[in-house]
Design a protein around this nucleic acid. Sequence first.
DNA 1: GTTCTTGCAAACCCTTTGCACGTCT
DNA 2: AGACGTGCAAAGGGTTTGCAAGAAC
Lengths: 156, 156
Amino acid sequence: MSSAAPDLEQITKQFTDFLRRKKFRITQERYRVLDCIAELDRHFNADELYVYMNTKGERVSRATIYSTLDLLTKSNILVRHRFQGESAHFELASRMPNHDHLMCMECGRIVEFRETATDAIRDKVCDELGFKPISHSLQIFAVCTDPTTCSFNRGS
Amino acid sequence: MSSAAPDLEQITKQFTDFLRRKKFRITQERYRVLDCIAELDRHFNADELYVYMNTKGERVSRATIYSTLDLLTKSNILVRHRFQGESAHFELASRMPNHDHLMCMECGRIVEFRETATDAIRDKVCDELGFKPISHSLQIFAVCTDPTTCSFNRGS
DNA sequence: GTTCTTGCAAACCCTTTGCACGTCT
DNA sequence: AGACGTGCAAAGGGTTTGCAAGAAC
């Protein structure tokens, strides 16, 4: 469910299995996108990936990037996050299995945290509703208890 | 933290306090938007609210609606959800305190559920990181255990 | 009176789409 | 050969913004 080591070879195989199973084609572009995501090794959005790939000479269009990100998400290789008013962010599902995000409503800070109890909730809910868990995304909205650390100014 | 009865009067007061505290102005439009949200009494997006208000003769512009939704979210009166590829959805924070969402990766179904243990996680994480909890949003991504219930077709 | 808010429409950003060409099967 | 994927640019939807008029302070 949550593999510790992100193994590109195994992920590539997982992608191939998905493409075959769903009768999508095996194209060079799709694998080049996956390779670059593994290289990036962090949160990213579609445009950041586009810029990264084209900067290093991998000529891939935005349309292909969006299309491949969709396939990688559907095959559970990527997790897609939708923060506040931002564009969709992605990351490898295997890389940081249990981390979630806390947003400060005053200053907009985003803090990452790990809390394994969330996995238990996910599994329990899936069990009760008749689903097989894949992943989850927990966002906590909060405000600083220490006002000096989190000083919200209207203008910002 | 999670009031059982959504009391418009109390919410209005909460909004007024927020506007004064942050030095925003007390305008009729802002309160008309809040009133209509209470009338709607369900999930909605900006455009649905715009259509609802203008259908019943409340002449309010989209710009004002977006602006007011932002203020209501910042004052913790509304909770903003960002599902799959959809527009931002809102609902009164007080109306359904503990419900979250499960998405089926195969057919796209969205199932609502209540799991109070999530609140404990939220409070624990906030405590450890030095935040005061406001609300949370847990999305679980899963697939049907029963394939006949959840038949994913590529075309869709 | 000054500053902020509103309304309108245009601009904006992110994402999807149509079409011609290229690639996989 | 045929069907699907790619690249490009243009369209699309949701949201924000610039500006003039109006309301709150």
